[in-house]
Design a protein around this nucleic acid. Structure first.
Length: 515
RNA sequence: GGCGGGGUAGCUCAGUUGGUGAGAGCGCAGGAUUCAUAACCCUGAGGUCGCGGGUUCAAAUCCCGCCCCCGCUACCA
């Protein structure tokens, strides 16, 4: 079966994880779980990007060594991954020993290709932005402070630096975009990248001598790698590069990233790989941001929210569901307690939870065994036809990196099943035609089984419980078993509510200040 | 400034190459029902389809102008 290597961006642990980190992690987890259930050989990588000047400074401010500082922060990212049921195969840290080896091997390949050269870099540098600015991009404030375009202070910095011949790759990158238009998605992002590259690329400074919290440049004492070489290489490390066996996983099938880092993944990363003579990832998908009432979260706005607290408040699976369903993947979306509660009540409690409850309760009352299938009529055929169409629709959504569309399709079938029950009214048939009532309940239960299987990537724990209620053996829950219909007569455990309604009010605040 | 994407019911959005009375979900109102988590099912409420022109038998859908929002424009999820 085909293999599927999928990654999130690695997170910079200079602050606590927030809902944006959770969003990317959950979406990528959905992709990975879906592929596993679909029988593919999956590797799912996520982790943290721990080097750089900002970390070194934060550590010093905290009176810690950089290593001690990141150890403390990274623990919070790992805790978030645990709390959100992120099924990663590895949590990579750029401070891991094998990552240094991978980076240096990548560097050596780029050097061997003649794409690295030593020069001097001089310019106005913003520590906060980790960016150099051209003189005309800076302005001098009334108090004499020179600031960059983002308003952060800049200082004149001149240092020796290794440069990467990015300029050489203008043409190859444009060819890549032309040959493989789905390399960057959504398509609007590809257009932006093309426009960016068409303006021409300048060589890129890829080492620093001004600090040492980074991966040493091989054979060049005093130089550490510029953070993006270091960070991007994590995807190779996660595949086992430079060991020979890394061909099993590399190239990656998909990098899931935020729209703010599309350029690094769509321009620098393929250029590095081309230089190194390594195959390119198949696709890069830049998702949107989750805004709180239209605003990006920031500590100063006081709207930083701990995703772990939200998961605790609403339940891990419901919170995951909200993230996956409420936002068209690729676009920005908004969240609020009101929006979460409305979504969970409408979809999970009213539609899916109630469907499961009414069906299982009727079955329990009728003897607690899977009813006999019997002879279905037109209504049954119609219902099953809709359920039959679901796997293909979900696979299509998965291929398009659109979990929201997969959930749309699944919940349309949930709604159809509620309607089916209303029309067939098995509670009435029970008195007039018990066999017909059984047939109706069997069909409802069977559709619920398929829905539950397909919803596992979004809500692994709750769907496991639902499948338990249907007595579906644990080993019969991957997509290969979608066609193995429920067998009449199977004893079922007593059902219980899966998705209680949640109150839209929020008695306790789940926001919290972070470091 | 340049390039790109948008402005459609209270909210979030669908609306292929212009054409049966402008749609979905949520929210709201009424009804029906009682198997079920005050849930499910039915019905409805009417939005100048950003503004102004134009093309056409016919435009939300094409053209022109204008207003507003957003993204990218060399390094923050």
């Amino acid at each position: 079966m085909s293999r599927y290597y999928v990654t999130t961006a690695i997170n910079y642990p200079n602050g606590a994880p927030h809902i944006g980190h959770a969003y990317e992690a959950v979406a990528t987890d959905w992709l990975a779980r879906f592929a596993r259930l679909d029988g593919r050989d999956v590797r799912f990588l996520t982790g943290t990007d721990e080097h750089g000047l900002k970390i070194a400074q934060a550590a010093r401010a905290a009176g810690l060594t950089p290593r001690a500082y990141v150890d403390g922060m990274v623990a919070r990212f790992v805790a978030m991954a645990d709390a959100l049921a992120i099924s990663r195969d590895r949590f990579i840290r750029t401070t891991d020993p094998d990552h240094a080896r991978a980076c240096q091997a990548l560097w050596q390949r780029m050097a061997d290709a003649g794409d690295l050269y030593l020069d001097r870099y001089a310019g106005w540098y913003s520590v906060r932005d980790e960016a150099f600015y051209a003189e005309e991009e800076t302005t001098v404030l009334a108090d004499g402070t020179r600031v960059g375009p983002t308003g952060t202070p800049v200082a004149w910095v001149e240092e020796e630096s290794w440069f990467f011949r990015l300029s050489r790759f203008t043409r190859p990158l444009l060819d890549l975009y032309a040959r493989q238009p789905d390399f960057v998605q959504p398509a609007s992002r590809l257009n932006e990248m093309r426009a960016f590259v068409e303006r021409g690329l300048k060589d890129l400074s890829v080492s620093r001598t001004s600090f040492d919290w980074g991966i040493p440049v091989p054979g060049s004492p005093g130089h550490v790698m510029y953070v993006w070489v270091d960070a991007l290489a994590n995807y190779l490390t996660g595949a086992g590069f430079p060991e020979p066996g890394c061909a099993r996983w590399w190239p990656a099938d998909l990098h899931v990233i935020g729209k703010d880092v599309v350029r690094f993944h769509a321009v620098y990363w393929p250029a590095f790989l081309m230089s190194a003579g390594l195959p390119l990832p198949a696709r890069v998908f830049g998702h949107g941001f989750i805004l709180n009432r239209g605003e990006k979260m920031s500590k100063s706005a006081g709207n930083v929210v701990e995703p772990v607290a939200l998961a605790a408040r609403y339940g891990v699976d419901p919170f995951r569901y909200f993230l996956l369903r409420a936002i068209a993947f690729g676009q920005d979306g908004e969240w609020s307690h009101e929006a979460i509660a409305a979504r969970l009540n409408a979809d999970l409690a009213n539609d899916l939870g109630n469907l499961a409850q009414r069906t299982l309760a009727m079955i329990a009352k009728a003897g607690g065994r899977v009813p006999a299938r019997g002879e279905g009529g037109e209504a049954e055929a119609r219902l099953l036809a809709q359920a039959d169409a679901l796997p293909a629709a979900c696979r299509e959504a998965h291929a398009a990196v659109r979990p929201d569309l997969a959930l749309d399709a699944i919940f349309a079938v949930v709604a159809a099943t509620n309607l089916y029950l209303s029309e067939r009214a098995p509670w009435s048939l029970r008195k007039s035609d018990p066999a017909a009532a059984d047939t109706v309940l069997w069909h409802a239960a069977e559709v619920i089984r398929r829905v539950a299987i397909l919803l596992q990537p979004a809500m692994p724990e709750r769907m496991a419980r639902l499948l338990d209620f249907l007595a579906v053996p644990a080993e019969c829950r991957d997509f290969g078993f979608l066609d193995r219909a429920l067998e009449g007569g199977t004893a079922l455990p007593p059902p219980a509510g899966l998705f209680p309604r949640v109150e839209p009010d929020q008695p306790e605040r789940v926001t919290s200040q972070t470091v």
